[in-house]
């Protein structure tokens, strides 16, 4: 019997599987290190508040009831602005996904308007909509509109053409093809567009609340910044990112439910 050797194993690796606790541990470690450098004086309070100070600021917000007031004001603006921008974006994006004319007009217009920072348009928005709620909602809606247009029409482009052919072969009217084939087929792309547009809505709430807002998380952050209350500033930012996490969690659940066929 000749000598035998095992075949060397060369597979494995390159397969990052999630480790449940890693993110929590990393998170806790960062906050611990931050608190440690604050309390040891390595990080002066002048430049960065300690996590404890931020926590205290948050607690004060809860105690005074300001939190609900700010959250309610911002959520209302975000929800309304996002809904208006999303509905508009879906309508325009769908038209661009179906009609050549809409696409030829919409594509350059969208490309031209998308990159404009909405903050730059604030003075115009004030002139058009005043300093009340409409201009704030419009700021968010405008920010949400363009990415939604783009994700919608690319998602519609991505719907396999053979499904449309199939619909035609069964004599489905055009409206039915849009409603029963194009839109559900585009749903995965549209939903991932929602992730982007909801983040944009959160980003823009700060810009929207620059103008004449007494309440709102954005207004709170701005005021804290103007007052150099860095603990409150960071507390406001923490609130925004918590809000972002909550929205992302909600969208994941929605995706899992709506796209259970995948």
């Amino acid at each position: 019997m000749p000598e035998t050797r095992p075949v060397p194993f060369r597979g494995g690796g390159f397969n990052p599987a999630g480790w449940r606790w890693a993110s929590w541990i990393a998170f806790a470690a960062i906050i611990a290190a931050w608190q440690l450098s604050s309390s040891s004086g390595l990080l002066p309070a002048l430049f960065m508040p300690s996590p404890l100070a931020v926590l205290e600021a948050l607690a004060r917000l809860v105690e005074t009831g300001a939190l609900t007031r700010h959250l309610a004001a911002s959520l209302q603006r975000i929800a309304l602005g996002w809904a208006v921008g999303t509905l508009g974006g879906l309508a325009i994006g769908t038209a661009m996904g179906i009609f050549a004319v809409a696409r030829s007009i919409g594509l350059p217009v969208t490309s031209a308007l998308f990159p404009i920072p909405k903050i730059a348009l604030l003075p115009l928005l004030i002139l058009w909509f005043g300093i009340g709620e409409p201009s704030k909602v419009a700021t968010i809606a405008l920010g949400v509109l363009f990415p939604t247009i783009i994700s919608t029409y690319t998602a519609i482009d991505g719907v396999p053409r053979n499904l449309i052919r199939m619909g035609q072969s069964f004599g489905l009217p055009a409206a039915m093809i849009v409603w029963k084939i194009l839109l559900p087929g585009a749903l995965p792309g549209i939903l991932s567009g929602f992730r982007i547009s909801s983040s944009i809505a959160l980003i823009l709430v700060v810009a929207a609340e620059m103008i004449g807002a007494e309440h709102g998380i954005g207004a709170f952050i701005l005021a804290a910044g103007n007052l150099m209350q860095t603990d409150q500033l960071v507390a406001g930012v923490v609130l925004l990112s918590l809000l972002g996490l909550a929205v992302s969690f909600g969208l994941s659940r929605l995706e899992r439910w709506l796209l259970r066929w995948r």
Binding site: N162, M166, P184, G185, W261
Partner: peptide, 29 residues
């Protein structure tokens, strides 16, 4: 209901509809 009817090489099923839903699509309108 549909005189000229196709069966496709790649099946052309709507992945978001159940078997029943896919068959029923041809009748719904």
């Amino acid at each position: 209901l549909n005189p000229f009817t196709y069966i496709f090489q790649d099946f052309a099923l709507l992945p978001w509809r159940t078997v029943e839903g896919n068959v029923s699509l041809a009748l719904e309108h």
